[in-house]
């Protein structure tokens, strides 16, 4: 009996583990098999054609990059500030715990609620209509916890002797932040930012009501009434139409490009992220 359990448990667990990996492989392979044949230089660089779901995805790609860049510009400074407040400036444990809890709460807010919030604030209250900036700001707010938590983890893992040594040299706390803490912890922030960007690039719900339209837009000229096309929204609309073979090919091609973009960002973050996790684990 004991022997059976001792043999059976690892086998059962290994099967679970293999199943998880197989799922990833299956998903990537499915998208790859259908999306790769569609892919070409023209598909990436051409604007969409006259027929729905024909032509290329130039402006969908552009819109996604614009949204993600805006999200970074909005989210990174906010997250950096938050992380410094939580891990450096606030000294009381209670204050830190409160900030940490708040961050987790923000992190738990479903993305569709950011979309509705954006509809209330940007579309209804500020009267912007659909705007790339609204989408970028919402996505930026959404990824603040991701970046901030990664930074805080790094700062807290920083050996205390570094800070003590710097303080011993008579550096002010602000100086310690800029010349010791930030240089040592940038990789945490960078990996958090990459993961956050991957998430922002793939999100549909926040931009559904606030930033994205299906067709007829190129490069925005201003902020008010300046929507963009975006890959996730494009896929979302076409996915409801899984019938037309022409649109189908376009759909898989778009899905492939989005998946490649997101996985590339996650892969870039991986070495930084997993190393940090291992270090945190082993102290």
């Amino acid at each position: 009996m004991r022997k059976w359990i001792d043999r059976g448990l690892p086998i059962a667990c290994a099967i679970c583990a293999v199943a998880c990996c197989a799922l990833l492989l299956g998903i990537v392979a499915t998208i790859l098999a259908r999306g790769l044949p569609v892919l070409s230089g023209e598909f990436l660089s051409a604007a969409d054609g006259e027929l729905l779901g024909s032509g290329g995805i130039r402006y969908q790609l552009f819109g996604t990059v614009l949204l993600v860049a805006t999200a970074l510009a909005v989210g990174a400074p906010l997250a950096l500030g938050w992380a410094l407040v939580q891990a450096v400036w606030v000294r009381s444990q209670r204050g830190r715990r409160l900030l940490r809890r708040t961050l987790y709460a923000v992190n738990a807010v479903p993305s569709i609620l950011f979309g509705i919030f954006g509809l209330i604030v940007f579309v209804k209250y500020l009267d912007w209509g659909k705007s790339w900036l609204a989408g970028g700001i919402l996505l930026g707010l959404m990824i603040v916890p991701t970046i901030a938590v990664a930074l805080v983890e790094r700062i807290e893992a920083l050996p205390a002797k570094y800070v003590r040594a710097a303080a011993g040299l008579g550096l002010s706390k602000g100086r310690i932040v800029t010349s010791v803490i930030l240089p040592q912890c940038w990789s945490g922030g960078a990996s958090g930012a990459l993961i956050g960007l991957a998430r922002a690039a793939g999100e549909t719900a926040p931009i559904l009501f606030t930033a994205a339209v299906f067709s007829g837009v190129t490069v925005p000229h201003g902020v008010v009434e300046s929507p963009v096309l975006a890959l996730p929204y494009h896929i979302f609309v076409l996915a409801q139409d899984s019938f037309d073979p022409e649109a189908g090919a376009h759909l898989w091609g778009s899905a492939f490009v989005l998946l490649a973009l997101v996985l590339a960002l996650s892969l870039l973050a991986l070495p930084l992220r997993l190393r940090a996790a291992e270090e945190a684990q082993h102290g």
Partner: peptide, 18 residues
Amino acid sequence: SEAAAILRAEAGLEIQVD
């Protein structure tokens, strides 16, 4: 949508369709 695409290409008009 298709009319808009033609007018965009031929006359440079800006038309968003949703």
